[in-house]
Amino acid sequence: MKRNIENVFVIAQKEFADSLWSPRFYLILGVFMIALLVNGYQAGQNISGMPRMGDFGGLSPLTMGFMSFASQMSMLGSLTAIILGFDAIVKERKSGSLNVLLTHPVYRDQVITGKLIGMMIMLGLVVFIAVGASMGVMLGVSGITISAEFIGRIIVFIILAFLFMLSYLALSVALSTFTKESSDSLIYSIVVWLVLGLLLSTIAYTAAGIITGEQKMFEVSSDDPSSMEKMEKRDKIAQNIMSISPSIHFIELVTGPQKSGIQFIAPGGRPDETPSEMQGLFDTGFTFGYWLEQNWVNLIVLMVIPVILLLMSYMAFMRQDITL
């Protein structure tokens, strides 16, 4: 038993080291870091200038900074995770190294578990370093000080970012288990990333529009309850479709419920705000407990998606015939 656990960690250690010394990984990590650091710097600049303008829609400048940060993270973080895992299994199987490894005293489940642990540790390190560094830049440039409670929220944000990126890592590992070539695994992963990250919203609203019936923008009026009802129905369907994307859950956890459809412009010229609604993790007007209460579904989904995908990879790997 002890030997079995030790072997899992021997494999995990190797997987971690492989990523650590991979030039490809450094390249994508560099791009990710630069994007986050630039974002941190810009957010810091904006924050330092914003107090003169006051709060925007009830949100503090700091909260706005984190929102933009979350949006950047949802695009580039997912891509970084994909790069980390797209050839995890297929490369070893294709090169024959899996063949050799399995002739040593390790079970298949130890191999896949070790690989996943190694990649998860690497992912955790990436998230911690990237988020930590860019937040440091943001806070340093803005010159503001934050409370202990806010630091707690930053830690929760790092955990959420990790879970979110883990979803994409698990997705790419699953695809690398099913495909026969690394290039196929990468292409499929990128396609899924494009669909979930960029196209899903358009697809969801189009599909919802088809289901509920065409509705032109000028047909929607706050004076017409039926048109409002139709629009709400369409939004609901679209949001249900979009809930398959981990990005949606991550963004909602960090920035609050996504506003969709047509927003009516308030007399002041700003979006019609509902101050009673919590604007995500960094909305310090509400307690952390309240955030948890409001977002537990999103949180569970963000935890369940990677678990399901990892289980799929695990089961597929266990059933595969490894050609000797």
Partner: peptide
């Protein structure tokens, strides 16, 4: 085994 692959890095 045949084929046999190793960690080429």
């Amino acid at each position: 085994p045949e084929p046999a692959g190793y960690y080429d890095n």
